[in-house]
């Protein structure tokens, strides 16, 4: 706009006027603002030269420093593995019992195998080994298959699938009630039916079970199949058994195999030590 048409001539404005008097001036921006502006674009240029910045079709510009976030991650990982390295080499080929005896090494395992336990075990047995409905507690000292370090390692390695035949054919409801009551009160060893019906064959004369068979201890008040109505639960187990293919109402109780392709030997050994140290290892 020429100066003649400008209603405010000689004022260094853009010539655009709104509402009769409102106009935009062409003043220089403040110095601090200009410093900030130039510093910003200089920073961007330097950054783009040094670091990966511009996306290309399949890749991006690399930057002269050659930095990548993945490299940084790998470096951090390497630093952690350097700390773990000596322990891990020591663990290889060492029997689980020896790991348990070595205080420093077992402390390392308790701390580092927490992740392993969380990934593989806690879905059924709970984050602290506290068990779940239908899944045994690992923090107590009641073990179906024995609580020594080797027993635990074996359970993880090979898995466990116990079997109790359904007794509905030889035990009637009244007898089952009697047996269940005796078990709940811890008096099963003195119950005549216990001997008569052949329960002692697996659960032992004293009712304490046998680790070799995986038969349950019936007098310690710790229940493999916990329920609100424990009496009813015990009766159900007597009538329908555990893992009995002939009875559709049988209880399912299976610990999967973790050996072979699932977990390495060292990992299983670590888990065995970890579980042993949860509070009930023998």
């Amino acid at each position: 706009m020429s100066d003649e048409k400008n209603p405010f001539p000689g004022e260094n404005n853009t010539g655009h006027v709104w509402d009769d008097s409102l106009r935009e001036l062409l003043n220089e921006p403040p110095t601090w603002w200009r410093i900030g502006f130039h510093a910003s674009w200089i920073f961007v240029v330097i950054y783009c030269i040094l670091y990966p910045a511009w996306p290309l079709l399949t890749t991006s510009t690399k930057g002269v420093l050659g930095w990548t976030s993945l490299d940084e991650y790998r470096q951090d990982l390497k630093a952690i593995e350097e700390v773990r390295g000596p322990y891990e080499t020591k663990l290889k080929g060492m029997p689980a019992a020896a790991v348990l005896a070595d205080e420093e090494l077992s402390n390392y395992v308790v701390r580092s195998a927490k992740v392993l336990f969380g990934d593989n075990c806690s879905a059924c047995h709970g984050a602290g080994g506290q068990g779940n409905v239908g899944f045994p507690v690992l923090a107590d000292d009641d073990w179906l298959y024995g609580g020594t370090i080797d027993d635990i390692e074996m359970s993880i390695n090979m898995g466990r699938k116990g079997m109790m035949p359904a007794q509905s054919a030889i035990v009637n409801s009244a007898e089952a009630d009697k047996l269940a009551n005796a078990i709940l009160t811890g008096q099963i060893a003195s119950e005549p039916l216990f001997m008569e019906k052949g329960c002692v064959g697996c659960h032992g004369v004293d009712g304490k079970g046998m680790a070799a068979l995986g038969s349950a201890n019936l007098i310690d008040g710790i229940w493999r199949f916990v329920a609100e109505d424990q009496l009813y639960s015990i009766k159900h187990t007597i009538m329908h058994g555990v893992n009995d293919p002939s009875d559709p109402k049988t209880r399912n109780a299976e610990m999967p195999t973790f050996g072979g392709t699932k977990l390495s030997e060292t990992d299983i050994r670590k888990l065995a030590v970890y579980v042993h140290k949860l509070g009930g290892g023998q």
């Binding site: 602290g128 068990g131 009641d142 710790i222």
Partner: peptide
């Protein structure tokens, strides 16, 4: 806290 307590044999 997990478990708060454990019953032993």
């Amino acid at each position: 806290r997990q478990p708060l307590f454990v019953r032993l044999s």
